[in-house]
């Protein structure tokens, strides 16, 4: 494959297809050099670029034009060029900017993790754990909204929303009619349906899976349990409308909820239909494949807190090892 192009991210070279984004190139390397992404979703066309958590520094534009890019760029929407050199965790500027973005995302977030169903699998929670400050500098009232039921199975908790637009893209691209969208502007923008219309179609439940925070939650699972007390099991069924490949979340004998199979970046493998998600909550409906592998860092694998230290990386990379060392020192302070 001679048409592959070479990029270097935090000193690690990788060869990728042309027109790959920096974020996806980083995901091909994997590990902790992958920028976090709150709004980008590889399966949704047009997503990304909004949350600004994936900002990276391009220290060398390309082989032809080696000038660095003047500003930090959103890695999810910037395509790689041959010979590009990118700095993510090795650039203090990027770390600082990301800290700023996380702070901005949190100033209007209720931080009600103890009563939020998303806790334990929330990307904002992970992000704040990694980059957030211990206290807030925001001393004003946070914006608040009433909770809204959109349809009988989904609840919208707008206070927690970070306006990533993922659910809007999902409704546009997975279902055939979108009845919700972003209304209003600036910090009073909100996800809403027009005149309290219910979201009602076969694939509407997927907005729950794509939501990076606890703004859209499954009403059938609401307050039933914490995710880290449930056991994820892979299963499938012969479904006429979708692929039928799901993860069942067990507590004891009982299936508490059904979700699509999410990868390490929280992205689903296949979108599933509402019948599978909401109506088939009995072991008899499913063919069990085996336990779901969950990242060892995840709190869903409870009591594995020793993996707090960074993942092992390629030894030949002194820059990254230095960054890891610093991160390890920071992490061990807790």
């Amino acid at each position: 494959m001679s048409d592959k192009i070479k990029v270097t991210i935090d000193g690690i070279p990788v060869e990728v297809e042309p027109r790959t984004s920096i974020l996806n190139a980083a995901r091909q390397i994997g590990g902790d050099i992958v920028p976090p992404a709150m709004c980008y979703y590889s399966k949704l066309e047009g997503s990304g670029g909004k949350c600004r958590t994936c900002l990276v520094k391009v220290s060398k534009g390309s082989e032809k034009d080696p000038r660095p890019m003047p500003k930090l760029v959103a890695s999810c929407r910037t395509t790689v060029m041959d010979g590009m050199e990118v700095q993510n965790i090795t650039s203090p500027e990027v770390i600082e900017a990301r800290k700023g973005v996380v702070e901005m995302l949190l100033i209007n977030h209720p931080l009600d993790c103890p009563i939020c169903d998303q806790a334990g699998e929330c990307h904002l929670q992970d992000l704040s754990y990694e980059h957030g400050a211990a206290t807030t500098r925001y001393e004003f009232d946070r914006r608040t909204f009433d909770r809204v039921d959109i349809g009988d199975k989904i609840q919208l908790h707008m206070n927690r929303c970070i306006l990533c637009y993922r659910c809007v893209f999902t409704a546009d691209q997975i279902t055939n009619n979108r009845v919700h969208g972003v209304l209003g502007r600036g910090d009073h923008a909100e996800i809403s349906t027009y005149i309290e219309k219910a979201i009602d179609n076969d694939f509407s439940g997927n907005v729950i899976d794509v939501c990076p925070v606890g703004a859209l939650t499954d009403k059938t699972f609401r307050f039933k349990n914490r995710v880290w007390f449930t056991k994820p099991v892979e299963a499938h069924r012969d479904c006429p409308t979708c692929s039928g490949k799901v993860t069942l979340w067990y507590k004891g004998e009982e299936v508490l909820r059904v979700t699509a199979r999410k990868d390490v970046y929280g992205e689903v493998e296949d979108f599933i239909c509402n019948t599978c998600r909401f109506d088939k909550k009995s072991t008899n409906d499913w063919v069990i494949e085996g336990p779901r592998q969950v990242s060892r860092q995840s709190v869903i694998n409870a009591n594995h807190y020793d993996t707090l230290q960074p993942l092992p990386v390629i030894k030949k990379n002194p820059e990254l090892m230095q960054a890891n060392k610093e991160q390890f020192e920071r992490a061990t302070k807790f």
Binding site: K50, C51, V101, M104, I162, R185, G186, D187, A189
Partner: peptide, 21 residues
């Protein structure tokens, strides 16, 4: 600027309101 921010990307959406307050 707080009033006119479109609310698409987070630093501007949240930051303009914060500065105004």
């Amino acid at each position: 600027y707080h009033h006119e921010s479109c609310g698409q990307c987070s630093p501007c959406r949240e930051g303009t309101g914060w500065m105004e307050k």
